Computed example of a mutant assay.
Amino acid sequence: MLEIKNVHVHFKNQNVLNDLNLTIEEGCILGLLGKNGAGKTTLFESLYQSTPFSGKITWKNEQLKREMISYLETENYFYPYITGEEYLAYFTSKKEEEIKGFLERFNLPLKKYVQYYSSGMKKKLALTGMLMLDKPINILDEPFNGVDFEGVHILYDIIRQLKSENKVVVVSSHIIETLFHTCDKIALLQDGKIEKIYRKEDFGQLNALKF
């Protein structure tokens, strides 16, 4: 179980996260919903320990370590002159056949330099690298941005695969329908706190909210 207790982040005279509390069970896909500036990325960076915070974050009752997390950021950085194949060579995987299947479906030009990829292709490449890390906690920050229709459905399959492996998945998206399709629960982040957690049977209530 991933437990976030009283997490507080303060930037430039502003509380971005304000004593935030959240518990996520293994095998749970949690959607994170909030307006721009609500603190979604700050929460992800706190989990990934790339931003200072106060409070406590634990995994299976022990302090969370960065190496337990795969983090797909909204914008992914690649060295200018690296091919997709060279990028993936940096990762090792216990699930080569499974990754190979997703790569075939993504149909990426792995011999080409990544700088010539579209934004959607870069997202797919970064996602493949993330999967190869095979971590118990997986954070996806706006993974559907720039991804074509086919890629969205492959993403659905990937997220379901992570769930079947009993992993924790936290995903944010401005496209609320993508969260409806994938999530077990959706947490509403507002004023630096988790305002409410919606279960599947309550997702319809979210249609009335504006983001």
Rank of each mutant, 00 (worst) to 15 (best):
K124R: 00
Y117W: 14
C183I: 01
G101M: 13
K124W: 09
Y113M: 13
E96K: 15
F180M: 07
K185R: 15
S118H: 08
Y156K: 13
Y116G: 11
L43P: 13
K112Q: 14
F91N: 00
L188F: 05
Y71F: 07
A187M: 07
P143Q: 09
F53A: 02
N21P: 10
N15Q: 09
W59D: 09
L179I: 04
E73Y: 05
G31P: 10
Y81E: 09
N145T: 10
G151L: 10
S173F: 08
E195A: 09
Y79Q: 08
I154E: 08
T42L: 02
Q161R: 05
D184N: 01
E150Q: 15
F78H: 01
N18W: 05
D202A: 03
K167N: 07
E165M: 09
I82Q: 01
C28Y: 10
Y48T: 00
L88K: 09
I29K: 12
L30E: 08
G55I: 08
M121K: 08
N18G: 07
E45Q: 06
K167Q: 11
F44C: 01
K167C: 06
K112V: 01
A187V: 07
Q63E: 15
I99L: 13
T41Q: 00
F144T: 14
S173T: 08
T74I: 02
D184E: 02
A208N: 04
I4L: 06
D157R: 11
